[in-house]
């Protein structure tokens, strides 16, 4: 689904954010990318999203090289207060991207409402984002991405600015919609949604990921990869208590701290 080879990016001011990143993500996989702050996680994500042209290397999404924003891709940004549009209602925020899909107005609204229901936000469709709590706003951002039915979903520290309880709820929401996305319409031959989740929270990377990729600091490069083989369905209390989870967490933690 996603191929990254020899990716490097240097900004105009000479700052080298990432260097020599190699990463392959299979269709339907949920890969967590974790690393210390300033290790170029966000740069990596921006390059994959086609928001930024890397100075070296090659990225392909679904076998096609990235040149501009790929078609079947959605992003959930960390900063929900800024990525949602305050002048649109919640429903219109979710429906706006569907213009690209060539749907009629009524269909767009219907899909938007369905996506909102999927994230448990029935009944706030007519409100404005700024009337909702932070966790709910981030749910709207997730609903917007889901309604778009992307093949590849990028999440840039999506739960970074909400409180701990909400964060756990949103993690579980992510795990549940991930399964749900297979059933949602779109092209039938497509497998589940592929998700790339950038986070600085080690627990979170293990808890939601099928695989954890550890980046190390400036310039960011892949330090190690760990496969997460925790039983599904995952549960905030049970899973986090498993010896396997504790062991993985410690391993990721060591990898992050090692220079």
């Amino acid at each position: 689904m996603l191929e990254i080879a020899g990716l490097g990016h240097r900004y105009d001011d000479g700052h080298q954010a990432v260097a020599g990143v190699e990463l392959h993500v299979a269709r339907g996989e949920l890969v967590s990318i974790v690393g210390p702050s300033g290790c170029g996680k966000s740069t990596l994500l921006r390059c994959v999203a086609g928001l930024q042209r890397p100075s070296e290397g090659r990225i392909a999404v679904g076998g096609r090289p990235v040149d501009g924003v790929p078609d079947d891709l959605a992003v959930v940004f960390q900063d929900y207060t800024r990525s949602l549009f305050p002048w649109l209602t919640v429903r219109d925020n979710v429906a706006l991207p569907l213009r690209r899909r060539g749907l009629a107005r009524a269909q767009r609204r219907e899909q938007a409402l369905a996506a909102l229901a999927q994230v448990g936000l029935d009944g706030v469709a007519g409100k404005y984002p700024w009337q909702l709590s932070g966790g709910m706003q981030q749910r709207v951002a997730i609903a917007r991405a889901l309604a778009y039915r992307p093949a590849l979903l990028l999440m840039d520290e999506p739960f970074g600015s909400v409180d701990a309880q909400t964060r756990e709820d949103l993690e579980d929401l992510l795990l549940s919609v991930r399964g749900g996305a297979d059933r949602g319409g779109g092209s039938e031959d497509r497998g589940g949604m592929t998700i790339l989740l950038v986070t600085h929270d080690i627990d979170e990377s293990v808890y939601v990921g099928d695989r954890v990729v550890v980046l190390t600091g400036a310039p960011g490069r892949v330090h190690s990869e760990l496969r997460v083989e925790l039983p599904a369905p995952r549960d905030q209390i049970v899973t986090r208590g498993l010896p396997e989870f504790v062991k993985l967490r410690a391993e990721v933690g060591r990898a992050v701290r090692r220079p």
Binding site: S42, T43, G50, Q52, D67
Partner: peptide, 22 residues
Amino acid sequence: MKRDARSAPGLGPGSGARARSR
């Protein structure tokens, strides 16, 4: 990251876009 956000390339495909971005 932010400083590049506005002049980020990727508005069009092909070498024209690359020249333009240069």
